[in-house]
Simulated scan of single mutants.
Amino acid sequence: DADHRAHKGLNNRIENAHRQTRKREKIMGRFKSPRQAQRFLSAHDQINTIFRPRRYKLSARSWRHARADAFCLWSDYTAEMTA
């Protein structure tokens, strides 16, 4: 009863694991070098983990609380940078 799709990359678990990274790269219009991609993704990943808590581990109330905390933290960071 497994759902097998015919396209060559859809059943490849390793390729699917990198889907979010590849999606971010595409949005950014590609990078000129692997070093530039690594610099961007390492900085972006730190911000991303603040704003996207692991939803499957949290109740709805905890998730909303984590998001509110993330926005408070972000506003504090931006206030420090502008001051």
Rank of each mutant, 00 (worst) to 15 (best):
D1I: 09
D1G: 13
D1A: 15
A2P: 11
A2C: 08
H4P: 09
H4N: 12
R5W: 10
A6V: 07
H7C: 08
H7T: 03
K8C: 12
G9L: 14
G9K: 14
L10M: 14
L10N: 12
N11E: 12
N11P: 06
N11H: 04
N11F: 00
R13M: 12
R13A: 11
R13W: 13
I14P: 00
I14G: 07
A17T: 13
H18L: 14
H18S: 10
R19L: 12
R19P: 03
R19M: 15
R19T: 12
R19I: 12
Q20Y: 15
T21K: 13
T21A: 13
R22Y: 05
K23V: 14
K23G: 10
K23L: 14
E25C: 12
E25G: 00
E25F: 07
E25A: 10
E25N: 07
K26S: 05
K26E: 05
I27Q: 05
I27L: 12
M28E: 05
M28T: 01
M28H: 07
M28Y: 10
R30E: 01
F31S: 00
K32A: 00
K32E: 03
S33L: 02
S33I: 01
P34M: 00
P34C: 00
Q36E: 08
Q36M: 06
Q36A: 07
A37R: 05
A37I: 03
Q38D: 08
Q38V: 11
R39S: 09
F40R: 02
L41F: 00
L41W: 07
L41Q: 06
S42R: 15
S42I: 09
A43D: 02
A43R: 14
Q46I: 11
I47G: 02
I47R: 07
N48M: 12
N48W: 13
N48F: 14
T49K: 15
T49G: 08
F51N: 01
F51H: 05
P53I: 07
P53F: 01
P53E: 02
P53K: 03
R54K: 12
R55S: 08
R55P: 05
R55Q: 06
Y56R: 13
Y56H: 15
K57F: 01
K57H: 05
L58Q: 06
L58R: 00
L58W: 04
S59A: 04
S59K: 05
S59R: 01
A60L: 08
A60G: 01
R61E: 01
S62E: 13
S62W: 06
W63Y: 15
W63S: 02
R64C: 03
R64K: 10
R64Q: 04
R64I: 04
H65Q: 09
A66N: 03
A66R: 05
R67Y: 07
A70Q: 02
F71W: 12
L73V: 03
L73K: 11
W74V: 00
W74Y: 15
W74G: 11
Y77A: 03
Y77E: 03
T78V: 09
T78R: 08
T78F: 02
T78Q: 01
A79G: 09
A79Q: 11
E80D: 15
E80V: 15
M81H: 11
T82G: 07
T82S: 11
T82H: 09
